[in-house]
């Protein structure tokens, strides 16, 4: 296994040297263990990972392999048992709750499997919410909301509450919410898992388009072959360890 880690680290360094890309995420010997003694579960062990700006990366692996845990740790939603995470060259492993909240607000967009929109807010307000947290002016918010609603094809549905939208529409709102704050990276946890294949494919095409045109960085955790097909990089996890890191094109 140590050979694998060394190989992956070397491959990454070589790639960086060759492309001159800017590192956006870096994890060093990242571990996340749950429980203790006989009930100790090593959800993630010694994960060394570097993700460059503009990558469209899929983290794959069987259920329980640690995909979501890795995504949670690099998104600052969980604290590692050991190891460190650097996001935009900032060590987020030791940040306080408020620092992490501010950091997530300004640097990370999240897309969740179950959409997870705020039920008491309309589609438009769900998108606007994060900009309010960022203190963006009303006119700028208005402009961005209109633009992003158009980009994700939700014009005319602005005032609907999540319960009045289909799954696909809700996930589009979630994508719009993740993008509207102009984050450095978007982390998506199985974003197509609850969608039918056509809706899922459309959504992926939209995200791929954003990745290519706006150089927005996407990291997915997924089982979906459609995402794997479109991904430029596939990181494979087994039993909490990164066992493979494949770059395409």
């Amino acid at each position: 296994m140590m050979t694998n880690i060394a190989e992956i680290t070397e491959m990454t360094e070589n790639y960086k040297a060759k492309t001159g890309n800017q590192t956006i995420i870096e994890s060093k010997m990242l571990c996340r263990h749950f429980g203790q003694g006989d009930t100790l579960v090593k959800a993630l062990s010694d994960a060394n990972l570097t993700i460059e700006k503009g990558e469209f990366t899929a983290i794959i692996g069987p259920s329980g392999s640690g995909k979501s845990t890795l995504l949670q740790l690099i998104g600052g939603l969980d604290s590692p048992t050991s190891g460190e995470v650097f996001l935009d060259n900032k060590n987020i492993s030791h940040m306080t709750g408020t620092e992490l909240s501010d950091f997530r607000r300004d640097h990370i967009g999240f897309i969740f499997q179950a959409y997870n929109l705020i039920p008491v807010l309309s589609a438009k307000e769900n998108i606007e919410y994060i900009m309010l947290l960022q203190g963006i002016s009303a006119s700028e918010r208005k402009k961005r909301v209109a633009m992003i609603m158009h980009a994700v094809g939700l014009e005319g549905l602005e005032d609907r509450r999540p319960a009045q939208l289909s799954g696909g529409q809700q996930q589009r709102v979630a994508v719009a919410r993740a993008m509207v704050s102009k984050p450095s990276i978007i982390l998506a946890d199985e974003p197509t898992a609850n969608l039918d294949s056509k809706t899922g494919a459309d959504l992926l095409d939209m995200m791929k388009d954003l990745n290519e045109k706006q150089k927005m960085t996407f990291v997915f955790s997924t089982h979906d072959p459609k995402i794997m097909e479109r991904a430029k990089r596939i990181i494979r996890l087994v039993d909490g360890r990164i066992v493979d890191d494949e770059r395409r094109g």
Binding site: V120, K124, Y129, G135, A138, R141, V145
Partner: peptide, 28 residues
Amino acid sequence: IAQQNDDEVLTLSSNGLVSQLAKRSIFR
């Protein structure tokens, strides 16, 4: 007037964001 036009589109305000969420949540 520009602010009023903004308000026609945007129903949340930065000043009372938390209170607006709280108000809506209690009637959920």
